[in-house]
């Protein structure tokens, strides 16, 4: 009985630890800037000031759109690349393909600080510095190892007999892919899409190094807004909610797949 009580007390405390920050963010975002004082931080706003969301939305909308374009297009591209790579490695292995795959996987463990300077020079040299397109390219390339891994593992489970049967029926490389592999791929695409979308949406290092203000994703804009001195705290808090919302929605509605991707790609750089 006492054990049960302690258990619930602990869970309650833990819940407070995880949710109090959220509570504070929401109530700060709903306060009139003049009423945000340090000694009354925990008081619920009266009246609720929805205006800060409108202002934050106006300020963040271009960055939010950048993030959306970036995350969606990079995710789509890298899912396609990953599906094809995984298909080749799982169903059309050639001599040395396992070694090449292992060499490829190494790319997912490196800390990106160790390639950041050459990457910066390279993106600048090909004229993509400061563009969203450059950032998309970078995310697709550094996503190759993890997406290839997920698709290869998934496709290895598909029986080779299915591929063989289709080939006897006269299907070629792409024919097998379109008619046999692709119709079975939905779960892998969901895992990869969720993983890449959250990763790219939340990413900061590449974004802050390779973009100009007009191509900034929302993470960079938020970090710079909060970093400035003498900010009205309702704005960064409303911005934090905007920046968190897409990935939170993914987590809430697709949590099962989210966790699967998390466990698959946990050591990614």
């Amino acid at each position: 009985m006492i054990g049960r009580l302690l258990l619930y007390a602990f869970l309650l405390l833990a819940t407070l630890f995880f949710l109090l920050p959220v509570y504070l963010v929401v109530l700060t975002a709903l306060k009139e800037p003049a009423k945000i004082t340090l000694d009354t931080v925990w008081q619920w706003p009266d009246p609720v000031y929805w205006e800060s969301f409108r202002i934050a939305w106006e300020a963040f909308r271009p960055k939010f759109q950048n993030s959306l374009v970036l995350a969606v297009s990079a995710t789509l591209l890298s899912a396609m690349v990953g599906a094809l790579n995984g298909y080749v490695l799982a169903k059309w292995p050639f001599r040395g393909s396992n070694l090449l795959f292992a060499l490829m996987l190494f790319g997912m463990f490196i800390p990106y600080q160790s390639i950041l300077i050459p990457l910066f020079q390279f993106v600048k040299a090909i004229g993509l510095y400061g563009t969203l397109f450059g950032l998309i390219l970078v995310h697709v390339v550094y996503g190759i190892p993890i997406v290839t891994l997920i698709f290869k593992n998934y496709y290895s489970e598909i029986p080779d007999e299915l591929v063989e049967a289709a080939r006897i029926d006269g299907a070629g490389f792409f024919g097998v892919f379109r008619h046999v592999i692709l119709p079975l791929s939905a779960p892998a695409f969901v895992v990869v899409a969720i993983w890449q979308f959250t990763q790219i949406w939340n990413e900061f290092l590449f974004a802050v190094t390779l973009t100009r203000p007009e191509s900034q994703p929302i993470t960079v804009a938020l970090a710079q807004l909060a970093g400035g001195e003498a900010v009205k705290w309702n704005l960064p808090m409303a911005g934090a909610i905007l920046a968190a919302l897409p990935t939170l929605l993914v987590y809430i509605f697709l949590g099962r797949y989210f966790l699967r991707g998390l466990l698959a790609g946990s050591v990614k750089g």
Binding site: L24, A226, A240
Partner: peptide
């Protein structure tokens, strides 16, 4: 769900929140 949700956030969001906290 409650214990795991911060995983979905960006470190930038977490940092901004805790800077205020």
């Amino acid at each position: 769900t409650v214990f795991l949700f911060p995983m979905a956030l960006s470190f930038v969001v977490t940092g901004t929140i805790w800077r205020w906290l």
